[in-house]
Computed example of a mutant assay.
Amino acid sequence: MRVLVTGATGKVGGAVVRAALEAGHQVRVLVRDPARVPGLPRPVEVVVGDVTDPATLPAAVAGTEIVFNAMGVPEQWLPDAAEFDRVNVAGSDNVARAAARAGVRRLVHTSTIDVFDAPPGGRFDETALAAAPKGTPYERSKQRAERAVLAAAGGMQVVIVNPATVYGFPPYGPTSMESRMFRPALRGLLPAVPPGGFGLVFTEGLARGHLAAAHAGRPGARYILSDAHVGLRELTAAVVVAGGRGRPPVVTIPAVAASVLAAGGEAVARLTRRPPPLARGQLHYLRWNAIPDATRARTELGWEPTPLAEGLRRTLAELDRA
């Protein structure tokens, strides 16, 4: 079938493109920057446009049966927090409205586990949708994006995928976990890590989950995709083992010190317009440290998590080539 993938030059969208091509689908991608087209897998059909510009979307959605809305701003800090709503919320709303008008049968929307609620360190599943606005601009934008897509759908089926923290294949931006944690750990240059942990999901397994949601997901349902929950020291130790080199951190930064560092880093970032080493929103997420339960995806979609050792092995092989 013919499918459209937004965010195709990003980590999640790129993985969905690869998985869709492997599954034999005809893949169209919406690309904002034509200069990034050569880096896309082949064969894909390219439409140049922007989710924040509704006029560019009809050509992208026309004739497609499934739309994977995998675009979004994944950062926890931006110089202008309004950008979260402009892209994550308004952009998703634009995509959903254009798809519905074009008669698209189903839209698979990439959200996040941040839209759920649980006590710090607690366990949660899809029934734990947060009723109140979450604590960071990024989280609130993802909450609003879900509501916008569902409201704009009309008769179109919408399935929501809620990934844990994504790691795996490129791109590896300067704020990515691979650049900020994996590479320094492999070089023995990561003496300390912030407190807390998170759920993780490997890009290629996440993409298979998107395709499973397109095929078997219940309209209106959410599906958590998470391979495992790990603490930061546990994760970096596993990276060192998988890479066969480097040194894991020996210190966890105390929570109070981490909060001071995050606040100071953001103060500097507001002047430099460059991301801080540790954003307050990121620390908030790490200290939440809640455990995602992917039982629904495994039961209803037949999705299987990627073992952490396998995901790290494949990630580090790609990281060495990048």
Rank of each mutant, 00 (worst) to 15 (best):
V250A: 14
V44F: 06
A322S: 11
V250L: 13
P277L: 03
D227I: 06
P171Y: 12
A132P: 01
A294N: 02
E75D: 15
A185D: 07
A100R: 12
Q76H: 08
T252G: 07
F182M: 07
L312W: 09
A185P: 08
P292Y: 02
G39Q: 08
Q143V: 06
G63D: 15
L30Y: 05
L283I: 08
R273H: 10
D320Q: 02
A294H: 02
I113P: 00
N88K: 13
F169G: 05
V241E: 09
E146M: 08
E126S: 11
K142C: 08
V44I: 06
G209V: 00
R32E: 01
A35S: 13
A131C: 11
P137S: 12
G168P: 01
I160N: 11
L319S: 11
V48M: 10
L261K: 01
E300A: 08
F169N: 05
G246C: 01
L316C: 00
R32Y: 04
L78N: 13
S141H: 04
V240M: 09
V230G: 03
A59K: 15
T236C: 08
L189R: 15
V3T: 10
V48C: 12
F202S: 04
K11S: 14
L186A: 01
G135D: 14
R274L: 15
P79G: 06
A60M: 04
E318R: 00
R208P: 00
V159L: 05
T252V: 15
H284R: 05
D85L: 03
V201N: 09
G196T: 13
R140C: 09
L261E: 07
T112Q: 05
G197N: 04
